[in-house]
Write a protein that binds this DNA or RNA. Sequence first.
DNA 1: ATTATCTATAGATCTATAGATAATGC
DNA 2: ATTATCTATAGATCTATAGATAATGC
Lengths: 209, 209
Amino acid sequence: MRVSRDVMAKRHDQILSQTSKMLRRRGILGTNLADLMSAAGLTHGGFYKHFDSKDVLVAEATARIFDEINQRFEARIEADGVESALRAYVTDYLSTAHIENPELGCPLSSFGPDVSRVEGPVRSVFTDGISRTLDLVMLGFSGPPALRRERAIDLLSALVGAVSMARAVQDEAIHNDILDTARRRANRTIEDAAIDAANVASNHHMHIG
Amino acid sequence: MRVSRDVMAKRHDQILSQTSKMLRRRGILGTNLADLMSAAGLTHGGFYKHFDSKDVLVAEATARIFDEINQRFEARIEADGVESALRAYVTDYLSTAHIENPELGCPLSSFGPDVSRVEGPVRSVFTDGISRTLDLVMLGFSGPPALRRERAIDLLSALVGAVSMARAVQDEAIHNDILDTARRRANRTIEDAAIDAANVASNHHMHIG
DNA sequence: ATTATCTATAGATCTATAGATAATGC
DNA sequence: ATTATCTATAGATCTATAGATAATGC
């Protein structure tokens, strides 16, 4: 029942893809190899020809999650510019679709606490992913790097916290309250930063002129 | 080997206490009955004389966690007033002690995502706990209720997100960057709200006088 | 007589491995 | 000849239960 290298590569990819979804839907401990291989259309016995252990799989899948999210961000920057990309990132982050489909969303709000309980490759891959996401969010702001970084951390913290809370609460009124408030806050943060940038530019122009 | 009702009540309490810590340290799936009963100084066989199931235990322990946190907040309000209590809450939340000892801290940042994956009593108890925490944080702000609620949600989201991220990252520089930024932001939020309140009070006074 | 705890274990589930099978790739 | 997958299973672990034991409480 051996398959060609091509088919095997596709299956390897499929296992990683299913893992990247299951991790965000069920968490690290809730992700089990039997369900995973079944979702990939295989039996669990074949797993170890693809990965050395569950831990290695989780680390690789986590790297893929951050790669995909960051690449999506970069593509939007290319297409519409940094400000527009940041707005789209925030709108998507606080959307109902993101709340209801964690398997396609940000790993910070879906299994960040799981990662804080492990050591090794998973943890360092996650650290690197957060670092690169912060670098991208920074690009959406203008001004000196320290200020841009501060704004990026504040914005991302607010997004992660709001989605974590909104997903945990059952009460629809509180749920909507959290998301609506987070949307207003995020928009205000972005608008204020844009106004600051415009004022700095205009003052700078006066000094020159 | 039967024990007195008094001793049994103390052991029941001890099981709940250990669970409240283990939930925050290891998450729901990471909390197992054998380790739990062992931590409570008992063998695992006796568990079901105390609780009907793991699920019931988790729900009761979660209720206890929120009760303790909210009672601590209320006690500080009694002792030092609402503004001071809110400042202390924020300082504690973003402290190194809280980052390193999740088992004594806020359940939102330690196992909020775990809760979003379950239904039933655990979820509703968690929802109620968040609701009551928001009510307490609101007290720390002045102004119309809608504004106070908005500020409470914004502040709590920022705290939850910052601690989730800080715990997940391994890199010390990023870790400190996140916490320092969150501390500045939280203090600014509280200061700005206080200034707003003072201005409103002073304007109000002028109109009267 | 009742019952809280203990030891032991059932039954399910999880990661990982062993051996057979059949297709690939040299 | 090599090897990716399959079936089967080892060994560990988890929730939950059964039966024995000994102390409580009526």
